[in-house]
Design a protein around this nucleic acid. Structure first.
Lengths: 199, 199
DNA sequence: GTCTATATAAAGATAGAC
DNA sequence: GTCTATCTTTATATAGAC
């Protein structure tokens, strides 16, 4: 059923295509870029892209799968570096800052989530998994922080997880929409929230 | 310079077109719908739409201007109904809930903000004004609430305004992306935030 | 793996009749 | 104000040579 190729088996050329496609989606959305845009940026012709990824839906599915995989890797690295919940949450917010900071890019899944009604169902499903994974991870970290006493108890971990996730995703959307207007990035916004959660 | 027609001068047919276009943008984004989609939903043909709005950029500019105008009206009504800051903020969050609740639609400007790099500059500028207006209004309400003692002092009003705005915009993006997964709507999320702001 | 050439359909837009 | 017909460009995709 799932005949799309795995991101771990990409040839160098295919990887370049996935790299460029990811950036284009984060800046313009699924319906905001074409194979021609990728071709121009990679320096090859359109049919060469179809050779690696027959359809756009397949290409974007691979982009999304790789994005989620890398995100999970980042969460693991972060857990290795920080033991306590407050630091983990700050490092989590910093992941969004890194994504946004580069070129005011959106989270890939934030962009695709906004477009959910206008993208292939297979892609929308991947996006759903991304947010589910985020909610699970955040809820667990917050719950553990409360048990260990580093975070204030008495607030629903799931509700706080959702608040943090939504605020970070929203910060990227609002930030790029607001243009030059003064704005805190996701990291600063996350830091303020984490501060209010501390014991 | 600004030759786009004003939304107050729309014929009934033009208004229908603007109505339908707004919904399509909120569900699929600027690059996710076409004149053909509008035509189908309104029950007329493509060229009739071009008669009212020669270009897509012009049409969406009018949609956005009307959206912002209605939003300002809603803020005024809300100020007339609620005197204190906490209630005003809750009513503000409820505006987002109403938008989202209908068909899990995004805020028009949230969607266009995400697509900022892939839409006409004139539209992007309107969207920027929307967020600027929101930040100004929220910051003022929060500052007044602190002065009047209904909101806890000591927190930066602008930072709290941004947090609330980002959380509400993000809640719509994440909510629709997460699909059926359990989620609080914007109103519940806003209520939790306002609670933490209370004196 | 990459190319040229080509097919097919859709999108944005215009001309001109009614 | 709405229509049919048409134009132009772009997007997605395929065929087949190198």
């Amino acid at each position: 059923m799932n005949s799309t190729k795995h991101f771990s088996e990409l040839s160098p050329a295919a990887e370049r295509i996935v790299d460029v496609a990811q950036g284009l989606i984060q800046r313009a959305g699924y319906n905001g870029f074409s194979y021609e845009d990728i071709a121009r940026e990679v320096g090859i012709k359109k049919p060469s892209i179809h050779h690696h990824f027959p359809t756009k839906a397949e290409l974007v599915a691979v982009v999304t799968q790789r994005y989620m995989h890398r995100f999970r890797e980042a969460l693991l690295r972060l857990e290795g570096r920080h033991a306590r919940a407050p630091e983990r949450l700050l490092a989590y917010a910093d992941l969004f800052e890194q994504t946004y900071g580069a070129q005011r890019q959106l989270c890939l899944c934030g962009m695709l989530g906004a477009e959910a009604d206008a993208i292939p169902a297979e892609v929308a499903h991947e996006v759903q998994q991304f947010f589910k994974a985020n909610m699970t991870w955040l809820t667990d970290v917050i719950a553990q922080g409360q048990q260990q006493g580093s975070l204030r108890a008495g607030v629903d971990p799931a509700a706080q997880a959702q608040l943090l996730l939504c605020a970070l995703e929203g910060a990227m959307v609002v930030g790029r929409a607001a243009g030059r207007v003064a704005h805190q990035g996701p990291a600063a916004l996350g830091a303020a929230l984490v501060l209010s959660l501390r014991a």
